[in-house]
Write a protein that binds this DNA or RNA. Structure first.
Lengths: 285, 285
DNA sequence: TCATTATGTTAGTTGAGCTTTCATATGAAC
DNA sequence: GTTCATATGAAAGCTCAACTAACATAATGA
């Protein structure tokens, strides 16, 4: 497309508005600018094209022949553009809000609560995809994500959701709080969480005779531990429900750290749906 | 037209270019910007609409479904706009260059020379409209004008063409140079030129017994004077041909003043035809 | 004739649009 | 597998297009 000989699109839009309104002042109100801006734009298009397009008549302006022909083309052209944008927005609004969350967070925190979200906002369909990768939200079509880390991800806006302290838990009666390393109870560790394992060893909470089993998900570890099979360590927020309901007891706890769970989304203006979901997340803590 | 939810037109054009090129770098070359500008615009449209439109694939980008739909609409819309602009330009180029000049200038200076202009530029049709008014060039559809005055006309670009000194002339043998006031020859004055009449009186060039006749145009005055009917005063440039050809003799002359003949046109870039005409005027002195 | 509302015009302000710079990714050639 | 060329990604900084503010002039209605 040859844009070389085309006046400024802003100027053409100003002319289009003035042409349809028959008035610089009315066009200005429609485009939320001053009449001076419209006047300058229109005259610059005229100067550029070497033709008079709108001339003063009484308290308004009327189109010349050249102006009428240009106005027709612009009306069609801008109409198509606006319709195309509107259509894309409608499609975006029609599909479910696409959310990605880490496996642990999705299973232990989000899914138990999602019923409450739907109760409150039945009109917002969600699509929740568990993933531990820091995916490219835009490329992979996500509106919003929840991720675990230090919150420093270039090109993303991050909002702190949960602090990342850990709690050591077991079923009631399995081990006394001050005898974790001497208890002989089996440790269950999630495969990916090397850091929490290191912490357990450095805190002296694992004895030489204690067996440890590595599993692939926190959910598996929690299933075993709820059944009285031993001890595990998890982010405090992910086991707060189990503790509150008496299924597990807290044996030890780390200090809150810099890393934690964050809400992430691309920079820029958020759609209403994303805003709603984000606000709900922050309130549902 | 509701522009409220429409991304920046510059950004949409950048997206359109990238969509059709399949490459930010190629789109940048086509729009004469850097690839960074294209990338920023595209991502801002995506952020605004809440949808991925172009994703990286190998060394280029490909359209998503949403992107393809938007690209179709933009292609149509921008295509219409460009076609409309092109059509108006073509019409403007097809019609004659519209020139307004003062009556005197048109008759005494321009028309005698216009043949040379057409000889040199046969492809440029001209429409010459004599008028002494400082018309609204744009409103009245003129490309360029020639006017007499001090050159200080707000909103117009002015280029000095001719200085406004005056020459007193008569046919050869009608009057001796040092005996204008004593000659008894009839003075012919153009109606509008009060200033030159005042100069004649103040210079003592009109005697108490001399008749003076006021006519409506310089052309009428010159006709009478060429026929030996008396004396007149005119802008030097307008009678330089008559003097050179021996039809008239110069009897007296004013000093050049601030006022004079100017080429006027609206501000902004001039079309090639206007540039050509203007340049020719300045050379044809 | 006066008040209201329009366009015309110019000087000044500012943020959208861009460039610059550097980083990272991809693919071709060797 | 390495190197080089060419792509996109991202952030900081620059600048002038687009605008506002202010005042002038024109047109219309009361």
């Amino acid at each position: 497309m040859n844009w070389r000989d085309v006046p400024s699109l802003s100027a053409l839009r100003a002319f289009d508005a003035a042409a349809r309104a028959g008035s610089f002042s009315q066009a200005a109100r429609e485009l939320n600018v001053t009449h001076a801006a419209i006047a300058q734009h229109v005259r610059s298009v005229e100067s550029d094209l070497g033709a008079s397009l709108l001339v003063r008549q009484g308290r308004g302006v009327v189109l010349t022949d050249a102006g009428a022909r240009l106005a027709d083309a612009l009306s069609d052209g801008f109409g198509q553009i606006i319709a195309g944008v509107k259509s894309v927005r409608a499609d975006v609004d029609a599909r479910p809000l696409s959310i990605t969350a880490t496996h642990n967070f999705a299973e232990s925190w989000l899914m138990p609560r999602i019923g409450k979200f739907w109760a409150k906002y039945p009109e917002i369909a969600l699509s929740i995809v568990p993933s531990n990768k820091l995916v490219d939200l835009r490329k992979d079509g996500f509106d919003v994500g929840i991720r675990y880390g230090d919150g420093n991800w270039p090109g993303l806006e991050t909002t702190h959701l949960l602090a990342a302290d850990y709690t050591v838990v077991a079923a009631p009666g399995i081990v006394k709080t001050d005898q974790i390393a001497q208890s002989g109870a089996t440790w269950f560790f999630e495969d990916a969480h090397q850091e929490s394992q290191r912490w357990v060893r450095e805190a002296g909470l694992i004895g030489p005779s204690q067996k440890s089993v590595t599993v692939s998900t926190l959910g598996m570890a929690l299933s075993a531990v709820r059944a009285g099979g031993g001890i595990t360590i998890a982010a405090s927020a992910l086991v707060s429900d189990d503790i509150k309901d008496g299924r597990l007891v807290a044996l030890s706890q780390t200090q809150p750290e810099r890393i934690g769970y964050y809400i992430i989304h691309p920079p820029g203006v958020l759609s209403d749906r994303v805003k709603t979901f984000k606000k709900w997340l922050l309130k549902a803590l």
